[in-house]
Write a protein that binds this DNA or RNA. Structure first.
Lengths: 207, 207, 207, 207
DNA sequence: GATGAATGAGTTTTCATTCAT
DNA sequence: GATGAATGAAAACTCATTCAT
């Protein structure tokens, strides 16, 4: 994550930044944005409060940086997941697999992520959600494109428009992840992506 | 909502309570729990701050009352939606229709509702989310039962287990609603429930 | 206490007033002036808050009335105690006896009384203490007079000036009462007034 | 009071604490605990309200610190007063002298002190009074011991039990101090401790 | 460049008092 | 004349942010 070819000073700076963000993530995801004070974060990150403010203009800025940072990771991983495979079905399968893996590895952050992308921002004025949702929407466009090209290839039937299909697929993933987050044992996220895929692929109705 | 056969005093009390809850809902959904002060709520409801405290012990109590009140309405409507029709398919279709209608009519509240049921409670300590999620889980059991009996009747194929199917169906609805909430024109919630239902009913894959 | 020859209405008014004062005394002595609300008093006295304000202009007025009322009783009893006996020694003995009896019977009030007469008024601005202390000082003059005339009669030696002697005698009583108030069993107020009187009467020093 | 060999920072901290306590003492003794706001104290001490809260957790904590601080000084001085002289009579004489001096020098605090040790705590729940009274009781035991040993030495007659004698002696001092507090000119505290001592030492009664 | 003491605006909550019914 | 709902000033306390060292 930290570029190794930066000047030593700069590398040190970034490492400190990471530490602060890590402390903030821990606290925010545990107690919620408004129930965490800047002092708490500084203390947990083992820096003076003034130092914290050297890195982030204010609390909101710190929060935004945190969300952006992790969202970027997510986004990168997911874009890669649907880019690498050539086959449309494989793209979808990989998407589910990677999304499950990435989210489960970042459990503490998911709450915050859902909050931001589903419109219930901790800090509603922040405007961050707008940006993220925008990117999220554009990402769904790419998923929709997969459905679209699958249809053109004759692999998929046009049971619905591509964009709604993309929304549906992603919503199902989110739904499962949300339940997994709540009680991982009672609601494990399916190891096999086909469990989710089949819901779309196979027709429920017996005709 | 207000019983018409109550003593005048009591009716007046309830009307005032409603006004306060309405003001609180407006503000909470616009700015978030922590960014709204009790003074603001009192002002918007056009009561003195002391009067507000006559009706609600404290801020958290007011918030809980609000969430509970509307959640109850939602729950009642949704239970009715899946109870009235006899046919399993009709139950599902009606569920989508009613959920869409109820949520769209209560847009300001949805943010809060999602926050509470999806684990990003504004007020993490409240314990209210627990109760609501529990009821939500039990409600999904009822949806699962519809899939289950549809399978037994030979109407549905067992493309997945009933509970995951229930999660999937509801997640798709939530996904659409979430997008509708963000930009109602760009992402209208489908008037025709079949748009959503077909995603489950029809097989996407061409074999 | 309530004059029997007053018009019925007036008698009723006075009875209600007494009830309010009684409730207030209970609460004030238990929890202190500032930790008791007017609502509490009204509730305990079983009147509406508005009615309470018909009888007393405000909280301070109620408090003053209460202190004055009981102080008057105390004062009357103590004046009588030193008036009735003819003999100077008997006057003093009777004073100790009556003071002990009156105070012990009004235990809840003593704290308040001491507060007011010893300068630690709950409500320092009240100015009530001034008036009470004035009367108290004048009362001590009467005690001093007893010592004075005892000296003139040759019954007492002039071991100190009469007024300091009066202060001393009364302080000793108060000291004992204060300890009794704290733990009645460990520090009983002496049944026999001579226990206190002897401290003055007999010389401690062996010459 | 402030150790001169502490690090500069620490010394500065203590000086500020003293300033806050001094302001609080002034206000509390003038207007009473409940009639003084934290803002007032901060203002008088010339600090921001937040700084006040850096030093004391809350209002009660500040009050307790204040009472404890000065009580400790009093206690130390009085214990020394009865410890230093060898002779029992000299111990008592010194006690009266020192108590008079210490109390007169701390007039503003006496009101509070009496309040706490005589059971009319401003803040009834504080529990501080309990602790102080306990120590006060134990201190009176030490005075009683002086009377006791004086009796064993044949210096004192057993005109009463030692503990009541201790109560009496101290109550007389308090009585005089209370009157002095009210009007220092009308009721000066006797320069010569014998004025008080003689009341105990010499027999009033002419036999 | 790091530090953390100091700041004070802003929040929740209480309660004495009023006045329309 | 009693009632008690409504009022809002004032209190305790928190915490994001600044800036002198």
């Amino acid at each position: 994550m930290i570029q190794p070819d930066l000047p030593r000073k700069e590398r040190e700076r970034l490492r400190q930044r990471e530490q602060m963000l890590a402390a903030a993530l821990d606290l925010f995801s545990e107690k919620g944005y408004h129930n965490v004070s800047m002092h708490e974060i500084a203390q947990k990150a083992e820096f003076a409060i003034g130092t914290l403010y050297k890195y982030f203009e204010n609390k909101e800025d710190l929060y935004k940086a945190l969300v952006r940072e992790v969202s970027d990771q997510f986004h990168t991983a997911l874009v890669q997941a649907i880019t690498e495979p050539d086959d449309v079905v494989e793209k979808l399968r990989n998407y589910i697999k990677v999304k499950g893996a990435v989210f489960r590895k970042n459990a503490p952050f998911i709450k915050i992520f859902f909050a931001e992308t589903q419109g219930v921002s901790f800090n509603i004025r922040s405007g961050l959600d707008r940006e993220l949702r925008e990117r999220y929407t554009r990402f769904l466009d790419r998923i929709a494109l997969i459905f679209e090209s699958g249809m053109k290839q004759g692999r998929f039937k046009r049971i619905a428009e591509p964009y709604p299909l993309a929304v549906a697929l992603d919503s199902i993933c989110n739904g499962f992840l949300s339940f997994w987050l709540e009680s991982p044992e009672r609601h494990p996220f399916p190891e096999d992506p086909n469990v989710i895929l089949d819901i779309l692929f196979k027709g429920l109705l017996n005709e």
